[in-house]
Design a protein around this nucleic acid. Structure first.
Lengths: 339, 339
DNA sequence: CTGAAAGCGCTAACAC
DNA sequence: GTGTTAGCGCTTTCAG
């Protein structure tokens, strides 16, 4: 690999001039600059990021910290990562994938001590997240995909749960439904303090109330079997429910089984909406499910951009909430007769 | 951040001694060593990876090159990445997530020219892959998850398609089936030269022949609708088929719809096996599908380990083939009567 | 507008 | 066993 010095020799100038010409750090005569650029091109010169980083204290590398939930990784998490990596790349940054171990804070201490990364992108943020405290205290720039309980001071991109719930409620209300139920993510898969689960439930209740719809929640099935059972219980307790929003793919499959077991059909007898899941998953069902798809790739992208933005200059916290996208499927219809 | 010099001062020794003590590069008196380690601990010293890399030409960073297929990323690809990242971490390496653009070779030229990465991990390798040629020519260490047409000289970890096909065939043959069909990945989603699609079809044919089973293939549905149509066509052409292996999730959903439309049921009237898909996806079906789940995380892990192994020392090509894991589901049963 | 020189934090000869 | 020293390739004063 050729170095700055090689370029300098070939262009008959000093290294500092080459550096300046290539980085635009200071004015360079047009003729000199052209000579330098040509020499660089001829040699196929690439700046050595290590040397540059060592000197400038900026590596243009971001770390994406990802936990390894027992339940395995979802499509959503994948999209955070790819979205963030793409946005980083577009802005001339690199993304380091950093798996979290048992002690995330220690992990972070280690990672940030290496001088390798300029900033950190946090995902799977919990309502109370020790990682944010550490990073703030350590003065390491970071941004969150998701948010803590009190996120006002921190850069973040998250789902707009309120708008999402309103959209979902408006969707079913527009079809004529008067009573809606919501099956949240199971408490087993995620701790109670998992933001999306906590927020989605609250926002659904609010949106239903504001729309004047009957509303039932408190169900948290985490598997197909639990989904079927929850559905049966729901129908026993609230026979008037004609629309159901479900947050877990597997639970939704169970609900469909329960619907079939009753001799019912979707969407004739029940409108079923999948929330916080991918349209890809929804397309595997029959009929395909109406979905509120989280803007995962965009959140990843936004997170990376915010972080880079923050690294380049200071300013007030950057924050963005993006609603899920409503993807209509074959599972939405008017309420069943006789309800 | 404290540096080697700080530690040296505090321990009253020379920097080189600290370096030696901490890296074990040369013998250091036990007492001195302890003093140094204590000083380092007290200062919370972390070696600066950039400085180390600049000097030693080894950054302990690997790049995982991942393409961004239009169809979006699957669970499988995600597991490659997380598996690789975890293995890398265990061995003291970092993983850079590097999205591929339109021109992968140019991308690679850029990435490897930066001096940032010690080696490259390739995924979604095609039978003829220009990236491998570039990397070989450039002398950049690399390993593949997947493999080219002629992979003998290159480190790689891939699915053992032959064993996987044999397992699948043995599974259905053991249940008493005499005639099997295979729906491959759609040609639209992947180019013809996509390894798994190409290899799986061949191995299924071989395994069926060796087991003395009737065999039908040539179907490549890429959506639920195409899956249903393919199933109907299959039944028209080969009414004796009682077991079906499908490589695409959505196509499998379509097959189930086709089965229902005939008034049939799974597994009573058709044994359905999902291949190369996740057990997670299979659990969303009713009944849950028997799956041949690719060992994606393990392949990622193996790939990273091979690459690191290669970086540490030379030797013959490292190569590992791992069969898919058969996860029995509710979609397997004896062949229907009258066939 | 350009060049010379210092030094980022570390490793690796090479002396002692 | 330990210390001294010369860079790795770059950015960044500081002179000219």
């Amino acid at each position: 690999m050729s170095s700055l010095r090689d370029v300098a020799e070939r262009a008959q100038v000093a290294v500092s001039t080459v550096s300046a010409a290539l980085n635009g750090t200071r004015p360079v005569a047009a003729a000199t600059k052209r000579r330098i650029e040509q020499a660089a091109a001829e040699l196929g010169y690439r700046p050595n990021l290590l040397a540059r980083g060592l000197q400038s204290k900026r590596t243009r590398i971001l770390a994406l910290l990802f936990p390894t939930p027992a339940g395995g990784f979802g499509h959503t998490e994948m999209l955070f990562a790819t979205g963030a990596a793409e946005a980083a790349k577009e802005l001339g940054y690199h993304l380091l994938l950093s798996p979290e171990s048992a002690d995330p804070v220690d992990e972070l201490r280690h990672l940030t001590g290496l001088g390798l990364v300029d900033g950190v992108l946090l995902m799977e943020v919990r309502l109370d997240d020790e990682r944010t405290e550490f990073l703030s205290a350590a003065g390491v720039p970071f941004a969150m995909i998701g948010r803590t309980r009190e996120p006002d001071a921190i850069d973040h991109a998250d789902i707009d749960f309120a708008a999402t719930a309103r959209d979902a409620v408006a969707h079913v209300a527009g079809l004529g439904h008067r009573e809606l139920a919501f099956f949240n993510l199971s408490p087993g898969r995620y701790a109670e303090s998992y933001g999306p689960a906590a927020r989605m439930a609250g926002e659904f209740a609010t949106a239903a109330r504001e729309a004047g719809l009957g509303y039932a929640d408190g169900f948290r099935p985490g598997s197909a079997e639990e989904g079927r059972q929850a559905f049966e219980r729901l129908m026993a307790e609230r026979p008037g429910v004609t629309a159901l929003a479900v947050a877990d793919d597997h639970a939704a499959a169970g609900v469909l089984a329960g619907v079939a077991a009753r001799g019912w059909r979707v969407p004739e007898d029940l409108t079923l909406v999948l929330v916080l899941s991918s349209a890809r998953a929804a397309a595997m069902f029959h009929p395909s499910l109406t979905t509120l798809e989280p803007p995962s790739a965009e959140l990843g992208r936004l997170g990376a951009r915010m972080l880079i933005d923050r690294l380049q200059g200071d300013g007030p916290p950057r924050q963005r909430l993006v609603p899920c996208r409503l993807v209509p499927g074959g599972s939405s219809g008017p309420p069943r007769a006789g309800s």
